[in-house]
């Protein structure tokens, strides 16, 4: 089928099977290889993208379901050559090691920060909420501590509920 959708603010069209995974459409058809595959079963979160404003595992979305939808991948987080606050803080805090989980974590954490999901929380509550909200993203390198630090730091940079991070 012919698929027309918006990816990172651009209108894209792809000829594909409706059964193909969104993950494969992004990586193979659109060459957006920032989105990673770690398991193919919706467990690791490395393939996380935003679909119509919610974070999803792109390995569990059928291409057909994406027609007319709006998708943001890790490639769409930076604006005008400036990294998203979450990306900057992952770098600054040492929240990335091998990097395979980082795109999924960046997309999910940017969603958390931009939607203000931890806005107004004290530090301990915010940390607990981050651990809950990001529990679908497995990282085997960091022990998560420095990632939580990075998300907290990014949230402090960004006015809650705005797109100011971008």
């Amino acid at each position: 089928m012919k698929l027309a959708f918006e990816v990172n603010g651009e209108r894209r069209t792809v000829e594909t099977s409706p059964w193909k995974r969104l993950l494969d459409v992004l990586r193979e058809d659109l060459r957006l290889t920032g989105t990673k595959e770690g398991c193919g079963e919706g467990e690791c979160g490395a393939c996380t993208v935003e679909l119509d404003g919610e974070v999803v595992n792109s390995c569990l979305v059928a291409a057909g379901q994406c027609d007319g939808r709006r998708i943001v991948t890790v490639e769409g987080l930076a604006r005008g050559g400036v990294l998203h606050a979450v990306q900057r803080q992952l770098v600054a805090c040492g929240g990335a090691q091998c990097g395979i989980c980082t795109p999924g974590i960046a997309v999910c954490a940017a969603h958390v920060v931009d939607r203000g999901l931890i806005a107004g929380c004290d530090d301990a509550t915010a940390r607990a909420k981050i651990r809950d909200l990001l529990a679908g993203n497995i990282c085997r390198c960091t022990g998560y501590q420095l990632i939580v630090d990075a998300v907290i730091a990014a949230a402090r940079e960004v006015a809650p509920g705005t797109e100011g991070a971008r």
Partner: peptide, 15 residues
């Protein structure tokens, strides 16, 4: 598989 061969998530990790 990662469903049953589990490793700690963000929520399992202590500070």
């Amino acid at each position: 598989n990662m469903t049953n061969c589990i490793v700690p998530t963000f929520a399992d990790a202590p500070e």
